[in-house]
Design a protein around this nucleic acid. Sequence first.
DNA 1: CACACTACCTTGCATTACAAGGTAGCTCGA
DNA 2: TCGAGCTACCTTGTAATGCAAGGTAGTGTG
Lengths: 101, 101
Amino acid sequence: MRKGSLEFCILLIISRGEVYASDILKELKAADLIVVEGTLYPLLSRLKSMELLAYTWKESEEGPPRKYYTLTEKGKKNLEQLKQTWSKLKQSINSLRKKII
Amino acid sequence: MRKGSLEFCILLIISRGEVYASDILKELKAADLIVVEGTLYPLLSRLKSMELLAYTWKESEEGPPRKYYTLTEKGKKNLEQLKQTWSKLKQSINSLRKKII
DNA sequence: CACACTACCTTGCATTACAAGGTAGCTCGA
DNA sequence: TCGAGCTACCTTGTAATGCAAGGTAGTGTG
């Protein structure tokens, strides 16, 4: 019915610029969405294998290297799709709320 | 993360007046939400066992009797909760969309 | 009385998210 | 120089959600 709004959020965040997992978790937390590592990593892997995301390893100045993610062309298209899906879902729920018998 | 927007939709529909399963499916379809029987019936049972819904059997003028559902007090409270959850999710996603780096 | 229709429900599977736990590189202080 | 702690990655097992497919039974109609 709604195909995971989390995926939508992740793609939104990555669309704004190269980030690595901890960045994403921070952004989600800032937006008041609680997500844990055990959810995020498998999802990133899945999106990678679906070719919606690409990553490059980058050295960090403090600690181990990081995987920085970006959207592929396919990922950008998919994000546009999800924006529409989301907008439709909002409309549907709105119509259910307004329609009082 | 979002605890099923479908449950929200079902409760919304039932909150507007006594309905039976096929009514709900029609309403969902009218709102452009595709749901099938195999999804709806187990969900209704679950909501019943959670005491959010109650039903009464009613004779039909054409065909077998129907289960008409209504919200319990608990169900009404739960629906208010879900309205808030939904509103927060919308805000969260909005904030992610607006915030362009 | 058999067939079609309506309305109920169940089973098995795929996907999604979480809790919990595990590996390994890097830095810093003793 | 080495080990404790941090950061960052990932995996496994489990619960919940939703769908596809199929099944049961009452009712009306030709």
